[in-house]
Amino acid sequence: MQETKKRASARSESPRTSGEIHRWLRRLARENPDIFGRGGQWKIRPVKEQHASSHVTEVYQIDDKRVHVKFFRRTLGPTSTTYEPCREMATEFATLKEYERRGFGSGKYQVARALGSDERLDCALATLYVGGFTLQSLIQDVIHGKRGPAELYMGLELTAGLLRRIHTEMPQSYYIDQCEMFYSYLKALLRLEETGALGGFHRKAMRNMARWYEHQPLFRQRGVTVHGDANPSNFKIKDGIIYAFDVERSRPRRSKCVDLGSIAADLWHQFAYEGGDGNKAEPYVQHFIRAYEPDRKHRNEIQDLLPFYTSQSLYKIASLGFWDGEYRRRLIEEGTRRAEEVPELSK
């Protein structure tokens, strides 16, 4: 009985009460009159909506507008030992503001608009809600015959255009962060190794990585700012405009192939998991790459390096805890096969 009272007291003292969240949202409405108007009563109510995320998220209706709130202290999966929720919240808020400052709040290719953040409310970050549909739902609808392939081709063209804009208009550098490149690859492999999932692929994976380490073009890439978590659930399309979300992993001095490989890997994964045949994703992957880079010479350079990054993303997907052993093995096998595609350089 006493323990029950303690738990009830803890809940009542939690900073993340609906009343405090509503007061915070009203303050954000006052601070953003260009969106919410001036002097309104701002009736607020929660709205139920499913959203694929690694954190607890909620949507609130404020009169005729909606706000999306992500709580960084409420994670839905494993986090690293160095994860600090309020630091991550502050990083994403600052990143969103930088995108806004550079013009990503208008036009055909946009990034979600940040409204505010508050450490006291479970490290909450509020962004202006965008309707429409995610690229992931579009992929799945095409796989299940609910939409035609032409719609997915158009969706991938929009995604390619947005990523290209990010890669060209955000900060660039002469070189990529080479240590981070291999650290990210190793991290995905080590997660699989720790759970015993890598199995007989361990030796092949290490050998492939050593071969890529000798591939000099991998190290001569120019650095760009990447989205950093370019999976299809983080892009929404509405009225011919595409919006990017969840940019807390957006970083400079990365290869553009980080984002391109993520999309390519997720297309294979969606067609394999939802449709039973990952090879059916290939026409869409090629269309996406052509839309991103129309120039054949530069596109060939991307195609040479893409297997390394696609492999990394497939290993990363495999390390998630959602899959049964058989499907996880398929992901690892495909990731290993992609990593074997090290280009042969002419002497």
Rank of each mutant, 00 (worst) to 15 (best):
L76D: 06
F71G: 04
V258A: 03
G223Q: 05
S53P: 04
S255K: 09
A114N: 03
Y284L: 10
R254P: 01
A230D: 01
G148V: 06
Q50K: 14
F201G: 01
V69C: 11
M89T: 11
V69E: 10
F288Y: 11
R253P: 03
D266N: 15
G103T: 10
A8P: 00
P85S: 10
P232T: 04
L25K: 10
P33Q: 10
R249E: 13
D177A: 08
V224H: 02
T225Y: 02
N279S: 14
M209A: 08
T95Q: 06
S18F: 06
L314P: 00
Y185R: 12
A8N: 13
L306C: 05
R164D: 00
H55Y: 04
V224Q: 02
G40Y: 06
N231P: 00
L189K: 05
N234W: 06
T82W: 09
K347M: 07
A160I: 06
L156Y: 04
F219C: 11
R251E: 14
M181A: 05
E31H: 13
Y213Q: 14
D118T: 08
F72T: 08
Q286P: 00
L218I: 08
V67L: 07
S9K: 15
K347V: 11
S184K: 13
R147C: 07
A244F: 00
R102K: 15
G325L: 07
S80Q: 09
S12W: 05
S311V: 03
R254W: 00
N32Q: 15
M154F: 00
G275M: 05
S80V: 03
